[in-house]
Design a binder for these strands. Structure first.
Lengths: 346, 346
DNA sequence: CTGAAAGCGCTAACAA
DNA sequence: TTGTTAGCGCTTTCAG
């Protein structure tokens, strides 16, 4: 037992292994990194010393010397309230990362600028190779110098807000147009749009899509209720207000700009027993939407693909790709389940 | 522009800052670490140099020197298929970590031993301070040497399987007894238990709780269908088989050992139009369970608390606590919503 | 095939 | 109040 090999409170080092195997540290290093030119007997000895000491190389120390500042670690920042969508994106990124022997430092963005930038600082201080921002709402200009140094930044389900970085998201505009057209095509002439914060890019695209479809149908805007900044709770309240209006003045169809908003709307419709009388379409699916009665018609995204593509783009950059920023739009799918096919009630 | 300060591909170092501010590296270090005894003018100069170069200290290099192998990073391993429960635990851990200026390395366990232990290795090589295993199924004996070196290991929603580490989980046994008693008290005499893999500790506790309640009611075991290894899909199939039996032989109530299993059961009941005739209770809640008709009665857990407590215990250990392993059981709550209050149909 | 020396970015210990 | 030296764990470079 040389050095600190028996020390309960610290990791054995390459020196401890070297001492036990009676070789030089560099030889241990060769074995660890599977470099050639190590005799098989030496290798054996080193390997068994590693095992005996439960030695585990310190990647940070190794990277420090290598100078390539590649920690094989990816940062992922989740901007949205925890929900199945962002979870899927996250785990999809994780599974790509594992294939690249990388790990994911994950954290939730809170919207509090100070706290969030502290989180990013912590990640950057740990020398992450890439950063994927999922559903990020605010601008991240301070990342520019980091990008110049080679940090691979990818925005998933959000726009890069001026940063020259790759982006992946659903084609929110086209998806919203599609859904809205479906509503219009079955005769709805009074509709409501309940959307999230419209300063978020994806939300604004959905809003625009909705409006574009309305416009092409030549419906007067007087027939449309447009409400922004919704969340589940507010959506409930607003929907109650909308449907408590005189029958001729109330919307016969509701476009929910997000799954949580849809939940609020559905709750409200149910309290009035109107869930089979007023149509609703939700942008983004949610668990159990198919099991309600009626089933909720949704504009479905593909979060797994978004995560996978984001991660792949990040690794391409990490591996040296220097092409122009790429902007991927993924198609959405309109899934009719009943709630979106309800005709206008009068 | 001294050293590599203008280099596009690498981070500026403390030396670059020192050169620009015309001080010694150690002085920069003092400023970074907010040590006393730095004149305010010097401090200013250093700070502005830091800003100009977009300098960010490398925590790994710092820790290396400090020798305390504290990377202020926590590992979190999620063992269950992505679902709202594990998501909540995860984000709850994250929010505690941030308070401790720590970051979370998160990864999903796959069940594939080789791949999973590679993931743990990667985390250990990054010198995480603690490891929280959420819903881990298999034994993790190889962690023992790491624990001896001071790695704080906490099991959340799972047992430590012999390892002397802290654990937090719901009181699965009591919760299951409670739910089952509720079913029995309204007169059910033919019941089915559909549970997940029974080699998972929490699952086995639920199973035992169910059986204990049955036993105390002196119901003959012949009246009970006990099925293990269910998932959503299998639960659907099995439920179909159960309810297609003769009316006198089929269960009048179903205990679903997990929310995904409950989903399969609910789907099956609906295809037969039996959702209002056969009772169901689900262990663990899920989004929208309250909005179905009837609402799904659940034995509710508190994932946020599980995550928070797990993280707190981990940080206590990291900060030197050496008490005996603690095992926390959190109460569950039976939430009646309709489906669990359906009386036996004959 | 193997080893010795130097140094990655940082800070502890000591000096000035 | 500031600077110097040494060394954390590892790998590079170069010499055996």
């Amino acid at each position: 037992m040389t050095q600190n090999s028996g020390n309960a409170n610290s990791h054995p080092t390459i020196k401890d292994v070297a001492a036990l195997a009676q070789v030089a540290p560099k030889t241990v290093s060769r074995v660890i990194n599977e470099e050639p030119y190590v005799s098989s007997t030496t290798k054996e000895r080193v390997l068994s010393a590693i095992k005996e000491l439960h030695y585990r190389p310190d990647v940070h120390a190794a990277d420090l010397k290598r100078g390539k500042s590649s920690s094989r670690t990816l940062g992922v920042l989740l901007g949205a309230r925890p929900n199945p969508f962002s979870s899927s994106v996250h785990w999809s990124i994780d599974s790509v990362a594992v294939q690249h022997s990388s790990l994911v430092l994950a954290s939730a963005l809170t919207g509090n600028q100070d706290r969030d930038s502290k989180t990013v600082d912590e990640m950057l201080s740990r020398r992450i190779d890439g950063l994927i921002l999922v559903t990020a709402a605010s601008s991240q200009d301070y990342l520019i110098p980091e990008m110049r140094r080679g940090l691979a930044v990818v925005f998933a389900d959000s726009t890069s807000m001026g940063l020259p970085s790759d982006t992946v998201m659903s084609d929110n505009y086209a998806g919203a147009i599609n859904g809205t057209r479906a509503l219009l095509s079955i005769g709805h002439r009074n509709m409501a749009y309940l959307g999230a914060k419209k300063n978020v890019y994806t939300v604004s695209q959905r809003r625009k899509g909705f409006l574009a479809a309305v416009k092409e149908s030549s419906l007067p805007m007087g027939n449309i209720d447009l409400v922004d900044d919704m969340d589940e709770c507010k959506a409930y309240t607003v929907t109650c207000r909308l449907i408590d209006r005189a029958r001729t003045k109330r919307p016969t169809a509701i476009f929910a700009g997000q799954n949580l908003i849809a939940r609020g709307v559905i709750r409200a419709l149910r309290t009035r027993g109107l869930e089979k009388s007023i149509a609703i379409i939700s942008f983004d699916d949610a668990d159990m939407f198919d099991m309600l009665d009626p089933g909720i018609t949704v504009i479905k995204q593909n979060p797994e693909n978004i995560g996978r593509i984001a991660a792949n783009m990040a690794f391409e950059r990490i591996n040296g790709l220097t092409a122009e920023p790429r902007h991927i739009l993924l198609p959405t799918e309109l899934i009719p389940r009943g709630s979106g096919e309800i005709p206008p009630s009068q």
